[in-house]
Design a protein around this nucleic acid. Structure first.
Lengths: 213, 213
DNA sequence: ACGTGTTTTAAACAACTGTTTAATATATGT
DNA sequence: ACATATATTAAACAGTTGTTTAAAACACGT
């Protein structure tokens, strides 16, 4: 009976994949240092030893998960900027995609930032993803547009900051905002949806001050 | 010899205060769940048992620290909005104060948000501070200004979000931004300083679209 | 049915966790 | 100087941690 159900699950998803999925969920919810191997095993429905049998150690498993999260986290940004759209469209679509992605994975920015700040080993997982970003030519293109005088003159670091602030913070601060304003989960989600349009309008309006409404 | 140094320190600062200060530092750096009582004791230069002798338990100590952090975190916001300045000045000063505060305590937003998300007990510590915010009449005033048509029509939640995003995120994302753009601590701090002006200009420009530059 | 290699488990390991206890040191009033 | 209250310490507690070990269950070609 129990064996049958277990076998069925095994058919749908390999043990290795079950562990990865459980680890992703637990790591993101609690952080690498604030969760236990046994918690991951329980979430995956198996013995602790199996986790180490497949991934050797908790830290190796984390490194694997973290790198794949970083991939997802920066992938859409790179994709948009590798396209051939005009710059204003790129930024608009970038913000919209970011809101879409964060709607599904609201905990990822906090997770990434915390691990980078608190777990020194996490930095290794970001390096391959960084190459992806650099090869996309995102930053070179922005510089070129500024030389043409089409875009407000400001450092690339700060442009990145401007866009990401208005995309990521609203999701990161969800627990804080909910308690400050006393709103429910559902109400806040509605705020997030309409906040996307404000973010697009405000960022574009500031980056291209010569544009007419 | 050793006793002499120890006694001197004791003169400058009571044991209780030393523990509080060590706890603040360790809690903010690592989070409540990801640090040990012995770590706090070591940071304060004393035995573990003393921490519990003064504060009964780790969680009671945390509750105390967290509430005082929340006070600092929201105090300047409340102060500014309780003043009699015109609204544009209030927002400008609010953002500038926020940048000043976060320059000194860059880890606090992350700390607050993480604890609220991961440590259910932390919510209790926020309630007295919330009353402080509500009594200040911050939100009522904003609503009044909107009725007068002086300010862009948008929900208070989203105005809060707009301002806090552009203040807090640049500090929260410091570890991420540093590795993405490969800049040093010092370079990033300079970016933060000039980012303050962008934040003020952009937020004011968006909230008061009828204003002329 | 048997043998072999792979998966999975229960049990154990030493190290570390928050907390408590009992003993020692220090301060203070007399 | 002595007694008493406070402050501080080392040691121990039971429970949990990441990891390892040895045994069991399983798959599968023969």
């Amino acid at each position: 009976m129990f064996n049958f159900a277990s076998r069925n699950a095994k058919m749908n998803q390999s043990t290795e994949e079950k562990i990865k999925q459980a680890a992703l969920s637990v790591f993101i919810q609690k952080g690498s240092a604030n969760c236990t191997s046994r918690e991951i095993a329980r979430e995956a429905g198996m013995n602790v030893a199996l986790v180490n049998y497949y991934f050797r150690s908790k830290s190796k498993l984390f490194a694997l998960i973290f790198e794949s999260v970083m991939q997802d986290f920066l992938k859409s940004m790179v994709q948009v900027f590798s396209s051939e759209l005009p710059i204003r469209e790129k930024i608009k679509i970038l913000i919209e995609r970011e809101f879409e992605f964060l709607g599904k994975h609201p905990d990822i920015p906090n997770f990434v930032i915390n691990e980078l700040a608190r777990n020194p080993e996490a930095i290794h997982g970001i390096i391959p993803v960084l190459q992806m970003v650099n090869e996309s030519g995102v930053f070179d293109e922005a510089r070129k547009l500024q030389e043409q005088g089409d875009m407000r003159q400001m450092d690339i670091v700060q442009i990145t900051l401007l866009i990401m602030s208005n995309c990521q913070y609203p999701f990161m601060a969800q627990p804080l905002m909910k308690v400050i304003h006393g709103v429910s989960n559902e109400t806040y989600k509605e705020h997030l949806i309409s906040h996307k349009d404000h973010a697009v309008a405000m960022v574009l309006g500031y980056l291209f001050p010569n544009d007419q409404l």
